[in-house]
């Protein structure tokens, strides 16, 4: 059985007729890096929130390991295992001192003080914010705040972290900091689910799922998914710039053996073509 599996999830908010999720099934293996793509309102954020029991599907079941998210007695066990990092770092920090904020999660879990200390130090070092531990959050940059928010989740020692558009409110520097942190976490063996609408972030993942209208549109390795340029365009989704350039060159009669996903690959392709 997969680490997380969602079976035919349907979801609609109480006050609306519209179904946000329309029968989504997906499996997430332990240790993988999955990117969930889609434009605004496609249901990707809602999907993310069903993975740690923040939202319960109206139909279908989400399993985390062998725990059903509908089982109320397991809620904290599920949330401890599947952390969720949200978009706005400002609204995720609880305390006025960084190390105390990171301690918030383990404190809620009732962990003994000495171990909390250990976890806090370890988490802050993992996101490279250890030297800021006694600072106040409001003096940090957006990227630094988001890294503290990640440390706050990390201190619960989750096996999976779901990132719900973690870079949407950050400047380019902050984005890079957060993406590097995510990469480092993946190397530690933590399962990553990254929800984003930046195509070049999705390229970093092992597997990409594209959602549209509450359904899964495409699924596969980044290169497979982004090779479907016409389909993605039809659903008003972007592809990475490098891929788009290659696609246009293909349209002009150029032979492209391997779709480039990033600038380096694109440069190599052009060198090859131009001889």
């Amino acid at each position: 059985m997969s680490f997380i599996s969602a079976e035919n999830i349907k979801f609609s908010y109480d006050d609306s007729e519209k179904t946000v999720l329309n029968g989504v099934s997906l499996k997430i293996e332990e240790g993988e890096f999955l990117a969930l793509l889609g434009h605004n309102g496609c249901g990707k954020s809602t999907m993310a929130k069903t993975l740690n029991a923040m939202l319960l599907p109206t139909e279908g079941t989400v399993w985390v390991e062998n725990m059903d998210t509908k089982d109320e007695s397991l809620v904290f066990e599920i949330r401890r295992n599947v952390g969720l990092v949200l978009q706005n770092p400002d609204n995720q920090l609880v305390a006025s001192v960084i190390e105390e904020d990171v301690a918030f999660g383990p404190e809620n879990l009732g962990i003994p003080p000495e171990e909390i200390r250990e976890r806090v130090d370890e988490s802050l070092k993992a996101v490279d914010m250890y030297e800021y531990r006694t600072h106040a959050p409001y003096k940090l940059s957006g990227g630094q705040k988001q890294r503290v928010a990640i440390a706050g989740i990390l201190a619960m020692r989750p096996r999976c972290i779901v990132f719900d558009e973690p870079t949407a409110m950050l400047d380019p520097n902050g984005r890079e900091e957060v993406l590097n942190t995510i990469d480092a976490l993946k190397k530690r063996g933590i399962t990553i689910v990254l929800i984003t609408h930046y195509m070049d972030e999705a390229v970093l993942a092992d597997r990409v799922i594209v959602m549209d209208n509450g359904k899964i549109l495409l699924e596969g390795k980044p290169r497979e998914v982004f090779s479907n340029v016409p389909l993605l365009k039809k659903h008003s989704l972007d592809v990475p710039q490098a891929t788009e350039l290659a696609y246009k060159l293909m349209g002009a009669g150029l032979k492209v053996s391997k779709m480039p996903l990033n600038t380096d690959e694109c440069v190599r392709l052009l060198e090859e073509v131009l001889g």
Binding site: M54, G83, Q92, G105, P106, P113, I116, I153
Partner: peptide
């Protein structure tokens, strides 16, 4: 902000003072 903060707190297993420990004693 309050709404989002409440959600973030729930994500971090906040459930009131019961069974809660503190880092700094």
């Amino acid at each position: 902000r309050a709404y989002e903060l409440a959600m973030a707190m729930e994500c971090r297993c906040y459930h009131g003072g019961q069974g809660r420990t503190r880092m700094k004693t």
